[in-house]
Simulated assay, not measured.
Amino acid sequence: MATFLFLIPPGAKSGDEKARIIRDRFSWVAFVLPIFWLLWHRAWLAAALAFAVQALGAAISDHPVFGLAGLGICLATSLIVALEGPAMVVAGLEHRGWTVDAVISADDRATAEEIYYTETPAGEAQTRDSVSLPASETSARRHAPMLGLVGFKEGR
């Protein structure tokens, strides 16, 4: 099962067809080409930071003593972008006014879209076993994001 985040633009209602769907998973493309992946997803500041850190790692890797440390810096940067890249994209969209409308666990994107866009005639979403709804309304405690990860309103 994969987790899909549905973000709606500012001023849009839930279930809007302009919703952006982001799959929260490890990305091999982001691991191999982290800077290009970030540029493709318009995370300009993160791409500039990743470029600076990887350039520093490449400069250090030429040193005879610290060569492995430089390679470790480059590898760590790629790993962070591959694991947290979707969270960086979500954070950038939230900064621009988008809101996370739903967090859905499904086998594939088509199933997640079907769950998100299928509603009863009364306008209320149907109850499904494979839906992971945000739990922020059911919890009295508020938790902040941990370890630098982006919080999804306790929906994961």
Rank of each mutant, 00 (worst) to 15 (best):
G97D: 03
G92V: 04
R42A: 09
A102G: 00
E84G: 02
L45V: 12
S78M: 12
L68F: 14
A110M: 02
W44P: 01
T127Q: 14
L71M: 13
E94I: 00
D108W: 01
V53M: 10
R128F: 15
R96L: 11
H143N: 02
D107R: 13
W40T: 09
E94T: 05
C74S: 13
A112G: 01
V65E: 11
A106K: 07
R109L: 11
P121K: 00
W98D: 09
A102N: 03
S139W: 15
E114K: 15
I73V: 15
T111H: 06
L45D: 04
P121W: 05
L49A: 15
A58E: 12
A87N: 07
D129V: 12
A47C: 03
A102Q: 14
Y116S: 05
K153C: 00
S132T: 09
H143F: 13
L133I: 08
A122K: 12
Q54A: 06
G67V: 04
E113D: 07
H63N: 13
R156E: 13
R156H: 14
P121A: 06
I73D: 04
R156L: 14
L71Y: 14
G72W: 01
E124A: 03
A43K: 06
F66V: 08
E84C: 09
P121E: 04
I73Y: 07
G67I: 04
P64G: 03
T111L: 05
W44R: 14
A52M: 09
P86N: 03
V65T: 12
R141A: 14
R42Q: 11
L39M: 13
V100C: 04
V103E: 00
A43Y: 01
T120A: 13
K153F: 10
V100Y: 00
C74K: 05
